[in-house]
């Protein structure tokens, strides 16, 4: 039982981690986050369903197309719901992105339909035997994809010009501008990447669960919990915290009972914040007087 529990924990957790990474990226670059990250996840899954099932496109067009939609969504959110507020130093972007999420969820509800659908995947057609327990190949693939993306992000930020520009904007925004980096573009790009990560999570989780307009809300909140748990300023911190959060959930479900899952996992978040106010891997920001 422990094996299957951990498989589930890792699969869920790496998706929380992936979405938390999305929170991390925008926060690191601009000290703002898209509170409707859950809606971006839902959007990825819904667009994936629309392209691949409704329109019957092959996956190698459908998946990139769905993720491209997420990227555009991220750009729109940044331009419409974050930049106007961040520019005047207001933190109303928080409520504005919440509102944006509500609008998107409901627009999808009335266009995509009210019933949950199932997104078929070649990796959930039949179960395989793994360490003495049955699992869909997708469940085993998800953590690998999650970690690969996190690794990819690390590689991109440390090896490519654009990635380095992003890192530079995080560490010393002014110096980055002085070397010719347009930090506003970097911020917009970070929102696009953030939404794409959520979209990937949505496309990966949908075949295990289902696709519906409301699927993102709880996921988004839990991913945010993971981001906070890890300390939103640390990339690997939020990834690890995501996996940890997923495993805590799975273990609670398996050994205490699923009715206690949310109580236990959210209590862990509060307790961690009480002991380490900046999260497990976060750094305190030096207060300037």
């Amino acid at each position: 039982m422990i094996v299957s529990t951990l498989i589930t924990g890792l699969a869920l957790g790496s998706m929380y981690g992936l979405m938390a990474l999305g929170f991390h990226i925008t926060y690191a670059v601009s000290k703002t986050v898209n509170f409707s990250q859950g809606s971006s996840m839902m959007f990825g899954a819904v667009m994936g369903y629309t392209f691949m099932v409704t329109l019957g496109w092959p996956f190698w067009i459908g998946i990139p197309a769905a993720l491209a939609c997420c990227a555009v969504l991220g750009l729109v959110v940044e331009r419409l719901l974050v930049r106007p507020f961040a520019a005047r130093g207001s933190d109303a972007w928080l409520m504005a992105t919440v509102a944006g999420g509500i609008v998107l969820d409901n627009v999808v509800l009335f266009t995509f339909g009210k019933e949950p659908r199932s997104l078929p995947s070649p990796f959930t057609e039949s179960a395989v035997e793994f360490l003495g327990t049955g699992a869909y190949p997708l469940q085993l693939i998800i953590p690998v994809v999650g970690l690969a993306i996190a690794l990819g992000l690390t590689l991109v930020t440390t090896r490519t010009k654009l990635g380095k520009a992003m890192l530079a904007s995080v560490q010393r925004p002014e110096a980055a501008r002085l070397t010719g980096v347009n930090t506003q573009t970097v911020i917009a790009a970070s929102f696009a990447i953030s939404a794409v990560f959520a979209g990937v999570a949505g496309l990966l989780i949908a075949p295990l669960f289902n696709v519906s307009s409301g699927m993102g809300l709880i996921f988004g909140i839990k991913a945010f919990a993971a981001a906070i748990l890890g300390g939103i300023s640390s990339a690997w911190g939020v990834m690890i915290a995501g996996i940890l959060y997923g495993c805590i959930e799975a273990l609670t479900t398996a050994y205490i009972g699923s009715s206690y899952t949310q109580i236990v996992s959210f209590s862990v978040v509060i307790l961690v914040l009480v002991t380490v106010p900046n999260g497990l891997f976060g750094r305190a920001e030096l207060k300037k007087v």
Binding site: F224, A225, I228, S267, L273, V274
Partner: peptide, 28 residues
């Protein structure tokens, strides 16, 4: 007491967690 040690997104999370804990405690 714990929530006010943190600010911004951390405070938001703390209050979200509180709401969920109350809801599920009411169930359990």
């Amino acid at each position: 007491v714990p929530a006010l040690r943190v600010a911004g997104p951390y405070l938001a999370m703390m209050t979200i967690a509180f709401a969920f804990i109350v809801e599920h405690a009411a169930i359990e």
